[in-house]
Design a protein around this nucleic acid. Structure first.
Lengths: 251, 251
DNA sequence: TCTTCAGATTGATTCACATCAAGGTGAATG
DNA sequence: CATTCACCTTGATGTGAATCAATCTGAAGA
């Protein structure tokens, strides 16, 4: 069992429930989140525009496609998925967002959210009103730069996914996702080899352009090859190099 | 033959060869390009930071993956493709860029270009040094806003492509691309129904996650169904509604 | 004019993943 | 404690696009 791995984040959720005084300055994630590039007095100003409300429950929406765009959001704890609904009613998952990551930037272009975002588990969110962020950006070159970089990063991530969908096999896609989640855990000082997947097999398949059955078979195959240990949503990477080889991306 | 359709742009290329005094103020594309949101005296300031050099020849690179990031670029005439090279040497086309469109924004995130860009035909380019653009953006809220929107738009476009690759059949993908090109032509006041594809079948297939053979077969099928007339790179959309149905996106 | 060569088309065959179908598992609920 | 239901797994079969293999086309160059 890897319950203990989640402990630090669960604690964070509780802390936030009891203590609405959380701020960017003392946030455990400030080295990977928006404040990353700022001096402490600038952080204070950023902090002043950020709104923290009570946590989202599992399956609650943060925003819906075509909602008015007002804010971008930082994940403080929990995980969200972003998805678009196609005209024939099907769903396309466009991304998963972990603590320290920013979502909602696709809404800037049309002043309306281009996708929906819902919590995969209880999630605490920092809301950053966009007009305030714009004004602050004009005053703080580092913030402006950092936000440009965040958006650019989202573009490169999407391009990675495009390549994955267009060129890679089912095995490679799943391996790449596991490596991505592992890396994002490491960034937050959590285990890179043991973690709990916050999303269902359906979501994984949807995100990777595969069916549930295929995802399930890939996991079984990886387990047989002793690259991964899979126990429902608990994942242990047994052979990181093997997984990288399987992903067939970076050597 | 649809040679006359290209005439306005060919003329633009010649004008630019002979006349390096082109500027944003008198540019035919200023209503769809970066100056879009600006007053005329602001346009002048933007114009001052823009560098125009001699046109790129077919197959010349504008920048290469991992080149130092210095500038973003606006296409004044011609077409470019952006592509990434995967670690095993294969190529993934991530976008096509037509006149009035901005490319290079994926380089902001790491101060290095995340993809390469090469000209599919002779192309005139406006280079916009990014540090200058940043400074100007801090002074002109409209410019900052517009540039945020441009990046956000790139994100939503990439998400469209992700959905296309993940959910749609070969027929649907090709139909969607034809509609996209048609729409972008219309935006530039060119014919929405007759145009010349600037890219090869290989590039189309690569972009859409299909092989050349499949692309070719789809074109043949569309021709048989009298939705499209295809003569090598010359395309005529005979039945726009039929094409939309085929794309199976917006009703 | 003939040659060459890259790009495009068309047909035959194969294969990876989707689809269809049938259980299995475990957390939530009465 | 039994029931339900969402989620996951595994197996059998089908299929759309990839692959393999020719051939065609037209522009560029000798």
């Amino acid at each position: 069992m890897t319950i203990h791995l989640k402990q630090s984040e669960d604690t964070a959720i509780k802390a936030c429930n009891h203590d609405y005084q959380v701020n960017c300055g003392n946030c455990r994630l400030n080295s990977i989140c928006l404040p990353l590039a700022l001096e402490s007095d600038d952080i204070q100003q950023l902090d002043d525009i950020i709104q923290r409300s009570k946590p989202l429950q599992k399956n609650q929406h943060l925003y819906r496609e075509s909602d008015d765009f007002q804010s971008v959001y930082a994940v403080r704890s929990g995980t969200l998925k972003a998805y678009k609904t196609t005209d024939d009613g099907r769903e396309q998952v466009t991304g998963f967002y972990f603590p320290g990551e920013i979502l909602g930037m696709d809404g800037i272009s049309n002043n309306a959210h281009a996708s929906s975002a819902k919590a995969l588990e209880t999630a605490a969110i920092c809301e950053i009103p966009f007009t305030s962020l714009e004004k602050l950006s004009a005053l703080m070159p580092n913030l402006q730069r950092h936000f440009f970089q965040l958006m650019s990063h989202e573009i490169t991530e999407d391009q990675q996914l495009i390549t994955l969908l267009s060129k890679n096999s089912a095995d490679e896609r799943v391996a790449a996702l596991m490596l991505s989640i592992s890396g994002r855990n490491a960034r937050r000082k959590l285990s890179a080899t043991q973690f709990r997947l916050p999303m269902s097999r359906v979501d994984i398949g949807n995100y990777l352009g595969l069916t549930v059955e295929t995802v399930s078979r890939v996991f079984s195959r990886m387990q047989k090859m002793e690259v991964l240990r899979v126990d429902n949503k608990e994942i242990e990477i047994l052979d990181p190099q093997g997984l990288k080889n399987m992903a067939n991306l970076g050597s």
